[in-house]
Design a protein around this nucleic acid. Structure first.
Lengths: 335, 335
DNA sequence: TTGTAGGCGTTATCAG
DNA sequence: CTGATAACGCCTACAA
């Protein structure tokens, strides 16, 4: 394998010049640059990324933290990440860590950057713990959140409240007034706390002049089972909802199963709006709030790369728009 | 950050000794090892993985090549990969590249290892092209195939023929004789060639004494649409099959849609056996051939790590067993 | 605008 | 068993 020395010799210059050419420095005359580049092609030289990382005192590695429930749409996220890496044609490679539950989350956040040295961390769909944030700050490891937020960390996210509002507005427009919410906790591992879409749901209900009946808001753990149970409860109410907004795709499946189990036909007897796009929702023909997964991940990674280069940027928050995809699970309520 | 020199000074030894301790060499006396390890904890020393890679003349990076259709089960594969990395507690990080179609496959295979230096390549669900194999051999880059095969490359795979046989046997056992096959080409990007399960299907049909009716074998492109079309054709035959084995999960969805569109109820009018396990098949309650995705990926990566260390191992082929998961899409044929 | 020299933190190779 | 020392291939001053 040719090294930078070979190229320098071949081009009749010093290695410093070759290095400058390699890194696109303006401090090289056009003629010299040309000669160096010729030498590079002639020798089929390619710089060693490891030696580069070593010299730059970087690792050229990023860590990606994902909760397990992203499984149905993780591929899209990954494509977004690869998009961003390709854009920047960087040599970064990835350490991907999944978190199965709250205990595992704590373990993974605790180990993050410890064993493996990384230049930055991308946290997907998971509110970071305080200890984790502190440690990142102490160790000067830049991090970016995707679809999560923290006061001192930059993030790219969809506005869950606005998305919920989109769904409620749509249901109201086609005639529903008894609209319920089956939501997940903001923290995907959480067993309590506010729902991810709750505020938006309330606001939109109030705008639509629809009453938020007691018991219509059900914030439950992020599993199909919990959602199924919640829907069952809703359907057993004296005044059951005619439409339900479900805050995650995993829960949407549970909701469908529960409706089916109670003999309700969707959308004839019950309208459903689901969340995210994946093979299930597409196959099932769910009316859905589409989250721009690929773009979300891409922008998150771009932001991270930026901060790897300039660690002192202020924490920014970017919101991306969701889109309501109308398919077959909503219909006007029956008189 | 403490370096190996600091540790050596602290422990009163040479850096060579520290390095030996770090790498678990037996050539260190117990007493010395202890002193070094104490120094390490005292100094909170952690070796720089980049410097390690540099010194070892490795990149500690692997490239993972995936066809786009693995999307529904990619997360499982990734978990298997991470399992293997954790087992070996290696510092390897990943470059993941998706291939959307045949042209993209050629591009990706062509670029593989070129831009990014990697220690090895894991190829998932994609038969490699000859040129690709040649280049890997020339550049001495070890590669392992997962669910694909090539005479000169090691691989870990499920035996599609045996899996198909499992499905056929099951259908025959519950009384079917008119059993058809909707299969994908061995090459997921292919538009022709043999089907992945075709041989097994034929063999099992012959064992079961069931006739392979002309037109019962339909090897079609790996899309829901193609599969739907194939099923429609099958259902329009004068003697339509009573059971269909579908060679991939993507195609299974198309098959279900086609059956639904032709007014056939599954499993009352038509039995279906699908392939792979994912959220769709679980939700839909498909009777399915379960492929041990996580184990497959894990063993593939283990094999790759082995070959990174000892590049001269002979190419081996390992087969893993599939399992027939009986759920709700098969029933005895109606008299 | 260019060349030179020093440094980065390991591993590996030798003597001892 | 152990310690010294030479790579490893690049980046980055600094000097010219």
């Amino acid at each position: 394998m040719a090294t930078i020395f070979d190229v320098a010799r071949e081009a009749g210059v010093g290695i410093g010049t070759v290095s400058r050419v390699l890194n696109g420095s303006p401090l090289v005359s056009e003629a010299t640059r040309q000669r160096v580049e010729d030498a590079i092609t002639r020798l089929r030289y390619r710089p060693s990324s490891v030696a580069r990382a070593f010299g730059r005192r970087r690792t050229e590695r990023l860590e990606v933290l994902v909760p397990h429930f992203v499984e149905p749409f993780f591929f899209e996220l990954l494509m977004g990440i690869e998009d961003a890496l390709a854009d920047a044609d960087s040599e970064y490679s990835l350490h991907i860590r999944a978190m199965t539950d709250a205990a595992d989350r704590d373990r993974v956040l605790g180990e993050c950057c410890r064993k493996n040295n990384v230049d930055g961390v991308l946290v997907l769909w998971t509110p970071p713990t305080e200890g984790f944030v502190k440690r990142l700050e102490r160790d000067r490891v830049p991090a970016v959140l995707v679809n999560a937020s923290h006061p001192s960390l930059p993030s790219v996210a969809v506005d869950h409240d606005r998305s919920a509002a989109q769904a409620v507005e749509y249901c109201a427009r086609i005639g529903h007034r008894r609209i319920a919410l089956v939501d997940r906790f903001i923290d995907p591992f959480g067993q309590s706390g506010a729902g991810a879409c709750q505020a938006g749901y309330r606001a939109a209900m109030s705008v639509a002049g629809a009453p938020v009946v007691a018991g219509y808001e059900r914030v439950v753990p992020l599993t199909a089972e919990s959602a199924a149970e919640a829907v069952t409860h809703l359907l057993e109410m004296p005044e059951p909802p005619t439409a339900i907004l479900v805050g995650s795709d995993v829960q949407a499946i549970g909701a469908l199963q529960a409706a089916r189990a109670r003999g309700r036909q969707v959308p004839r007897d019950l309208s459903l709006v689901a969340y995210n796009e994946n093979s299930v929702s597409r196959y099932l023909g769910l009316t859905t709030i589409r989250v721009p997964l690929r773009v979300l991940a891409r922008q998150g990674l771009q932001l991270l790369l930026q901060r790897v280069q300039e660690p002192n940027l202020a924490a920014s928050v970017t919101y991306l728009d969701t889109e309501l995809v109308v398919r077959g699970t909503c219909a006007p309520p029956r008189a």
